[in-house]
Every structure is written in C-alpha cells, then in structure tokens.
C-alpha cells in the first residue's frame, strides 16, 4: 500500500512543481522548457513503477519500468541483432530506395504537366490507403528475410514522398522563374539552382513523414513471417511466451530508433533549409 500512496504523493508534488514552474517568470528559459516535460516523463515512470508494485500487478500484464530496464540491459546483444535486421537492413534500405525512387520519378515527370495532373491525385489517393496490407503479398514474393521488409517500406514511403516532391517542385513562384528566364537559364540550371532548393522544405516534409512509415512497415511486415531475428519477430514471439519485459524492451528500442531517425532527418533539414522562415526563430 505504501508504494501506491508514495507514488501518488510523488505525482502530486511533481505536478505542483510543474504548475509552479510553468507559471513562474522562468517559464521562457530553455532549461525550464526541457525540465518540465522531463519531469512529466519521470513522474509517469515512477507512478507506473509504484502502482505496479503496490497493486501487485502480475508481470504478464504489465512489468514495472525497472524490470524492463533490467531486461534491456541484460539482452543488449539480442536487441542489437534485431535492430540491425529490422532497422538497418529492412527499414533503412527500403527508405533510401523508396524515397530515392519517388524523388527521381517526381523530377522525371516534372516536365509533363499531363502526367503530374494524373499522378498527383492517384498518388494522394494511394497515400491514404492502408498500404501496410501489401505486406503479406510482398513477404510471399520476396521471401522471409529483410528483402521483403525493404519492399514493404518502399511501397509505403513512395507515394507520400512523390506527392511532397511534386508539390515542392511547383513551390517557386512566377517572379523567381521569370528572373531565371531573363538570365537565359536553361531547364537544368533552373531546376538545380532555383526549383530544387525551393522544394527542399517540402522534400524534407516527405522524408520526415517517411521515417515513421518506414519503421512501421518493417516491423509489421515481420508479423507475416521473418527469419528468427528482427524487432517484429521478437515482439510477436515474446508476446506468445508472455515475457512482456522483453516486448517492452523491444518497444523501447523501436521508440528510440524512430525518434533518432526522425531527429537525424530533422537536423539535416535544419542545415539544408536554414533560409526558410520556419527554421529562423
């Protein structure tokens, strides 16, 4: 019982601190802006730990964070193998192929307004569909190993990326294009020096959306069949064995990989589109 009361008391104190900080004159500082969400996150973990221990929730329903952390630390080798299989081999290669192919397609259809008018609505339509459903088909075609996962990722990221790139290439305005024409710039010159740089915010938007899709695609495709490693494989088998601490450890890896992947792309974006208003704050 003391666990429950203790964790609830901790929660109350921390919430009070957060409220006080958020309304204090310090609220604009960088430190407080990082501190408040961190406190919230830690509070959640402490309350989780306290309630699970205090109410004696069985491990097969919800393991406490400390058990998950212990499991995480003791099975680093397995987690690393799974990470390489799913993220590096499956998600990353599919991401590069899919985004690259979509980018090239967008540049190729750039000179044909006819194809753009046709492909853009179709692409938008397909991007809203549950493409993840192609996973069983692609697993049948390309086998159980990472090739099929990469294929699922390619299909998932292609259309969002295509739509964003095509929109981006249309983003430079008439005045700018007219200026290029008065310079006597050729089509490739206009493309390289004006329209691609102007498209970068859109292209990076597509790239950022695709990071999450890539990871989801690679993990879910493994539910349909995989070799005996991989994050999706581990999650589905460990769930079957009711060792939920391992599942949570794997989910932690997925969350870390997902936010790190997104963070890296966002950092590259910051460097490339430093001129854009959204980056100049």
């Amino acid at each position: 019982m003391s666990w429950v009361i203790g964790s609830l008391a901790f929660w109350a104190v921390m919430t009070w601190i957060n409220f006080w900080l958020a309304n204090s004159p310090l609220r604009g500082t960088r430190l407080v802006k990082l501190f408040v969400p961190a406190v919230f996150g830690i509070t959640l973990l402490v309350v989780w730990e306290g309630l699970v221990r205090g109410l004696q929730v069985p491990n097969v329903i919800l393991p406490p964070p400390t058990a998950i952390a212990a499991r995480f630390a003791s099975s680093l080798d397995i987690l690393w193998v799974d990470f390489v299989q799913t993220f590096v081999k499956g998600a990353l290669s599919g991401y590069i192929i899919g985004c690259g192919a979509a980018f090239l397609t967008a540049v190729m259809i750039d000179r044909s307004p006819f194809l753009q008018r046709g492909l853009l609505p179709v692409g938008n339509f397909i991007a809203a569909l549950p493409i993840i459903g192609t996973a069983p088909i692609l697993v049948m075609w390309f086998g159980f190993d990472w090739h099929s996962k990469a294929a699922v990722v390619v299909v998932m990221v292609f259309f969002p990326m295509l739509v964003n790139t095509v929109q981006g290439l249309a983003a430079s305005d008439h005045m700018q294009r007219d200026l290029m024409r008065t310079y006597g710039a050729s089509y490739p010159q206009t493309l390289l020096k004006l329209r691609l740089p102007a498209a970068m915010p859109f292209i990076f938007n597509g790239l950022k959306i695709s990071t999450t899709l890539a990871l989801i695609g690679a993990i879910v495709a493994e539910f349909f069949g995989s070799p005996i490693r991989g994050m999706g494989f581990r999650i589905s088998t460990e769930v079957g064995r009711l060792s939920l601490d391992m599942v949570w450890a794997e989910i932690t890896v997925a969350a870390l990989a997902g936010s790190a992947f997104y963070g890296v792309v966002a950092m590259i974006e910051k460097g490339v589109t430093f001129w854009h208003p959204s980056q100049r704050s």
């Binding site: 919430t15 957060n18 409220f19 900080l21 958020a22 309304n23 609220r27 407080v32 802006k33 408040v36 969400p37 406190v39 919230f40 996150g41 990071t211 999450t212 990871l215 989801i216 993990i219 879910v220 539910f223 994050m231 999706g232 999650i235 589905s236 769930v239 939920l244 599942v247 949570w248 794997e250 989910i251 997925a254 969350a255 997902g258 936010s259 992947f261 997104y262 963070g263």
Partner: peptide, 25 residues
C-alpha cells in the same frame, strides 16, 4: 500552460515512434 509544457513535447515525439508495435502485446 503547465499541461502544454509537460504533455505537448511527448505528444509530438510520439508521432515519430512506431506505436503499432504494441498491438500484439
């Protein structure tokens, strides 16, 4: 403002993680 400062960063961060992975569990 307190909720904004504590919850919003997590809500945004959660968009970058593959939440679907918890489905089987």
């Amino acid at each position: 403002r307190a909720m904004d400062m504590s919850v919003m960063p997590w809500a945004i961060a959660s968009q970058t993680i593959p939440i679907l992975a918890i489905a089987p569990m």
